[in-house]
Amino acid sequence: MIEIERLSKTFRTETGADHAALLDISLSVPQGQFVSILGPSGCGKSTLLYIVGGFVRASSGQVRVAGREVTGPGPDRGPVFQEFALFPWKSVTGNVIYGLLEQGVPRGEAERRVAKLLEAVHLKGYENFYPKELSGGMKQRVAIARTLAYDPAILLMDEPFGALDAHTRTLLQNELLSIWERDRKTVLFVTHSVEEAIFLSDRVFVMTASPGRQKAVIDIELPRPRVRSELLLDRRYQETVVEIERLMENRVE
């Protein structure tokens, strides 16, 4: 589904020097797989996501989605950002229905779908609320619903739960998984939390600190559906956590 081939990205800083954010990244993601991109702060993992999304252009290398090269953003790759990025002048409904209207779905049908989506993310009753009236967790639910609305084949999630408190984070992780289980979309999930990466994904792509290079790709063999309380006591889970944490420790920041 996603083919990332020898991707590199260099930024020009204000002083004119070149800063290598990504170096020679290659990754192949089959359809329906949930892949976490894990690494320390500043390792370029978000940049990698943005390039796949078509928001940032690579310096060298290629990204192909469903066989076609990525040249810009599109409704086949739906983003969810850590800052929520909701349209503040639109209500919850206005935000979620946006993609549907852009895709040309007639209003009546679009409203029906929005109602279903809001129910799926447990936001029924909040249709006419504005983003500023919502908590962080609710905003992220709206953001997820908004992206799911135009049914992208791929979900690009950039530390979506990073701005939330631990409790809400756990809640949303579970909600995300249950939503994902239904459609089994392809997901690229950026995070700096080892536990989150292992809990959610089929594979974990571990990156080094800046410039971001591939350190390791770990397959997560834990069965689904995953229940947090069970996993915490599962030996294989614990070993994987230790293994990956050791991998990440191996570098002086």
């Binding site: 983003p79 990025a85 993609g99």
Partner: peptide
């Protein structure tokens, strides 16, 4: 304007 607002709209097809 936060660029991610624009990105969200672009991804939705604008």
């Amino acid at each position: 304007v936060e660029p991610k607002l624009l990105w969200s709209a672009r991804a939705a097809g604008t």
